[in-house]
Design a protein around this nucleic acid. Structure first.
Length: 412
DNA sequence: TTTACTCAATGACTTCCTCC
DNA sequence: GGAGGAAGTCATTGAGTAAA
């Protein structure tokens, strides 16, 4: 049995190995490269099954046994207010969509000091993240489990100024691995138990059979139940639509979307059946400058919270549309998008920039040795991994992208 | 060989806006 | 007017590359 831990942070990989049964399997530690866009020298050398998990975004760690990914982990110390907790959601989704359980370590709350220390308070996690992860589990029948990054919150929730770990945002770090969460905390020991359980099931049943049993496992069911209870307690009965990022969405008749898109339909062209097949459309309306984070992750979460009813993005009850600009209803044109913060040119510019990393137009004699396998990867995958993160994620999740001065959409 | 610069990604902090 | 959420800006890191 060959165990490999793919990591972006060496210390975190050793932290996980030392605290789980992985320590007895003499794992190999290998660096994970995020994409062909961010690391053209090394990305193409990753195994194909690892690339598939990275097709949207790269997690902090992937554990692989005999060339089969077993689970992935994402860790963050960021304050989880607003849409922040969703920034990493696309990579959790990518993992689970490939049948690989995903662990997410996120602070229940972290201390944010504002105005030079005049204001010291806990910023608590947006509970909608629990709901979104539950939806992913329901769609794919693969665990997506959140564990709290250990903190002083439960003991010093009312008094952040007295929190022992105030200089580190109230977060408890490990003694041996200081950049990592405190491995002695119950949240982390619970996570290690769940990891060991997954490794044990894989050892007994093999990867494929183990996957189908994971959600029935008692330890995993208990965590899932805990997450549901946390959502209920923290959301206090609020509807998902009253929480970020759902507050930035609106549901409209698809006919309104088609009216809006008709401005771009010339020379007898008629929009295809995919958009028409769904009676209603969810529009993620962002009146902001075009950018990446946090929108890609939020878009993926909106898909799972409000649109999906099957394993692929084609199986949606509602179209999912990302609209940049100031939304304004319009009786004849469906709706308008105003403002100058974002333009379709921003998106096109990024796509064009990614093409500069495409080496398929080169002559063989001009390729250096290390570029030959990269060239061969691009022959197979085109620019799948050469585009930057947001371009990949937007094009994957959004059935249409709208700007004040242009639009892109799928036909089928 | 060293240094400076660029790019991509991530995360933290500040500011703005809306609602009560 | 204050609280909290949303959006914008900035700092950091790591890798690659071109110039000194």
């Amino acid at each position: 049995m060959t165990v490999t831990i793919w990591y972006s942070t060496d210390e975190f990989a050793h932290f996980i190995a030392a605290n789980t049964s992985l320590r007895t399997s003499s794992p190999a530690f290998k660096k994970l490269y995020e994409s062909d866009a961010s690391n053209s020298k090394n990305f193409h050398a990753l195994p194909d099954h690892i690339k598939k998990i990275l097709y949207l975004d790269s997690p902090d760690l992937i554990v692989e046994i005999d060339s089969e990914p077993i689970f992935s982990i994402e860790v963050s110390t960021e304050a989880g207010t607003g849409h922040n907790a969703f920034q990493r959601f696309a990579r959790l989704a990518a993992s689970v969509e490939n049948g690989v359980p995903a662990f997410y370590i996120y602070p229940e709350a972290s201390i944010v000091e504002r105005n030079g220390g005049a204001s010291v308070r806990w910023d608590a996690i947006n509970p909608l993240i629990f709901h979104a992860m539950e939806q992913v589990m329901q769609v794919h029948s693969i665990p997506a489990l959140l564990y709290f990054f250990p903190s002083d919150y439960r003991s010093y929730g009312a008094n952040p100024k007295k929190a022992p770990n105030r200089p580190r945002k109230g977060l408890k770090h490990d003694v041996v691995y200081p950049a990592c969460p405190d491995g002695a905390d119950a949240e982390m020991t619970d996570m290690f138990t769940a990891i060991d359980q997954i490794l044990s099931l894989v050892g007994h049943h093999g990867v494929v059979r183990a996957r189908s049993r994971l959600l029935q496992d008692l330890i995993i069911r208990q965590r899932r139940t805990y997450m549901q209870a946390e959502y209920a307690a923290k959301a206090g009965g609020q509807s998902p639509n009253t929480m970020s990022p759902m507050t930035s969405t609106k549901r409209v008749q698809t006919s309104e979307l088609l009216k809006h898109l008709s401005a771009y339909c010339k020379d007898g062209y008629r929009i295809g059946n995919l958009l028409r097949s769904r009676e209603e459309t969810i529009i993620y309306s962002v009146n902001a400058k075009y950018r990446g984070d946090p929108y890609p992750g939020s878009l993926a979460a909106i898909d799972y919270i409000g649109c999906r009813q099957g394993m692929t993005f084609e199986e949606r009850k509602y179209n999912l549309v990302l609209a940049w600009g100031e939304y304004e209803e319009h009786p004849q044109k469906g709706f308008l998008l105003g403002g100058r913060k974002a333009t379709v040119k921003d998106f096109i510019r990024e796509v064009k920039a990614s093409e500069s990393r495409n080496i398929l137009g080169r002559r063989f004699s001009s390729l250096s040795s290390w570029e030959i396998p990269r060239y061969y990867m691009q022959v197979r995958y085109g620019s799948t991994f050469s585009k930057n993160k947001q371009v990949r994620i937007y094009a994957y999740f959004a059935d249409a992208m709208l700007f004040p001065d242009g639009a892109l959409w799928r036909d089928g």
